[in-house]
Amino acid sequence: MNITVRVWRQPHADAEGQMVSYEVPDVSEHMSFLEMLDVLNERLTMEGDDPIAFDHDCREGICGSCGVVINGVAHGPQQTTTCQLHMRSFADGAVIDIEPWRAEAFPVIKDLIVDRSAFDRIIQAGGFISAPTGTAPDAHAAPIPKNQADHAFDAATCIGCGACVAACPNGSAMLFTAAKITHLGMLPQGQPERDSRALGMVGQQDEEGFGGCTNIGECTAVCPKGIPLETISRLNRDLLGAMLHGSR
């Protein structure tokens, strides 16, 4: 198949960017989306053009490095990571618009690469259980009901790709933060720091310049791991609880 891509090109953080069109002939439907970009980049390199910069690493949908907005949808038409999207999802002759995640807290570094370090700082603000190495009791000391463990796991599958923010009309990071708060809050080990975790992480999220959640649900609709919207309500519960307890 032959396609045209229109890609956001921006040489560096402070430069003006723009959409640039490239024809990509002879695309195999079995190529992954990123392999299509690889092929284009090989050609650009040989033509002396700067290849398109994009983040990617594991290419099996788990590391969370990749992610671009494809035709206005974070990660494109399938609810999966960009690396797991294949060209068979597009029609011959398609014109595909490719843009970086857009959010105040995710500044563009180059082309399709954005800075997502805000996520790390949200985790630093409480997204952990304080369990210094060597202090742990036996793993069977505290049984955890299976359904609780499963719920915690569902939330823990978040890969931190940032699609939720890119899709959110408010540029909110609530689904990301909520996934971590739900993961740790569902487990008995996570209880002692539950209040401080909610206050810390949400506070940091606001400080990073993410927007507020209006429960629209675009985040969960593009989330490659299908983190459910309920996690956000759990976060809200923990947060209100923490505010009422007057912790911090």
Partner: peptide
């Protein structure tokens, strides 16, 4: 033990 204490959600 360490991983469970950190909240790793192993299968149960």
């Amino acid at each position: 033990d360490q991983c469970v204490a950190q909240g790793v959600p192993f299968a149960r």
